[in-house]
């Protein structure tokens, strides 16, 4: 087992109250495995990923509970220096927005090779050579001449490639790709995911893909975790989930994506209603107010995840 997250709970404490951004989330990941995290905007996907690297912005944000066992060590118990030696080295994170996630006053080359300088003790000369190699591997054309370029000279797609190259530079065991592609058009998105998938397969790197896009998950992830209002509400192997989604929310998500084999006269059905305020969650199931299958118990008690088959768990009273 590469990664075991147990009861991860991350809150933001601000003036108005406590934002329960990630609440009691557990999952496991094997070497080389790819997991997708899906859910609506604001459901806690990014915060759960940032928690793994202890990058929650303080002082309001705090991991209040949980264990993150990575290669046998609990990341939450490491010293500041120890967690620094894991970030970018053993676990790399690729962020949503390439253009704001790259430093505007430093060259692409320096930014891509920086993890090598920090973690591998490489000198700049060797770093540049390795950097060119990395930029080639993410298919940036004319890589040697792009090393000295600045982020504003890159397009969004090229910037994202550079981010991927940066993430892969130290050959990490786990890559977290937070919505790697939403800002990009669909063909570039597909291209980038292919590149990333290819490179991680070659190196046996495990991956967590965070996205809204169920199509991406279906194609690239071995397993899926569906999040709603800070909680994991359904976890399954990808084929199982797509064959038989169980949670009403997951079913809703599936029904809201367009399909090629669908009759075009049939309307897409978005999920009615708004996700709840994470600072002010309902007492029972957070999805209850929007749920067509809501029973009395749903409003009273929050459901826990229950196993309904070997590789499928769901948190819903309808299956209890």
């Amino acid at each position: 087992m590469l990664l075991a997250v147990r009861n991860l709970t991350t809150y933001f404490f601000n003036g108005q109250g406590t934002v329960k951004a990630v609440d009691d989330v557990s999952y496991e990941l094997e070497e080389g495995q790819t997991m997708g995290i899906v859910g609506e905007s604001g459901c806690g996907k990014t915060v759960s990923a940032l928690s793994l690297l202890r990058l929650i912005p303080g002082p309001s944000g705090r991991i209040v509970r949980g264990e993150i066992l990575f290669e046998g060590r609990d990341l939450l118990k490491l010293s500041q220096d120890e967690i620094c030696s894991i970030r970018g080295n053993r676990i790399a994170m690729i962020f949503q927005e390439p253009m704001t996630s790259l430093n505007p006053v430093l060259t692409i080359g320096y930014q891509v090779m920086e993890p090598l300088l920090v973690h591998k003790g490489m000198n700049k000369k060797a770093g540049i050579l390795k950097c060119i190699e990395l930029l080639k591997s993410v298919q940036i054309p004319d890589a040697p001449s792009r090393v000295g370029a600045y982020p504003h000279q890159f397009s969004g797609g090229m910037g994202q490639r550079a981010m991927i190259a940066m993430g892969l530079s130290c050959n990490p065991r786990l890559i977290i790709a937070d919505e790697p592609t939403t800002a990009l058009d669909v063909t570039i998105q597909a291209e980038l995911l292919e590149i990333m998938k290819g490179l991680t397969r070659d190196h046996g790197t495990a991956m967590i893909i965070i996205t809204h896009n169920l199509g991406v998950v279906a194609r690239y992830a071995d397993k899926v975790m569906v999040m709603y209002a800070g909680k994991a509400i359904e976890k399954a192997l990808t084929p199982d989930l797509y064959r038989r989604p169980r949670h009403p929310y997951t079913k809703g998500l599936m029904a809201s994506i367009p399909r090629l084999d669908q009759d075009i006269r049939q309307k897409l059905r978005p999920i009615e209603g708004q996700p709840p305020d994470l600072a002010n969650l309902p007492k029972g199931c957070a999805f209850a107010p929007r749920c067509a299958f809501c029973v009395e118990r749903c409003r009273r008690e929050p459901p826990a995840l229950i196993k309904i088959s070997e590789n499928h768990e769901v948190a819903c009273w309808n299956y209890a």
Binding site: L53, L55, P57, Q80, D81, C84, S85, I86, R87, G88, N89, A92, M93, F95, E97, T100, S101, L102, N103, P104, E114, P115, V118, H119, M166
Partner: peptide
Amino acid sequence: HDYIRTAHAKGLKERA
């Protein structure tokens, strides 16, 4: 800014 978060995610120490 986001790029400061990126710098932290690379494993740089606070000072760097």
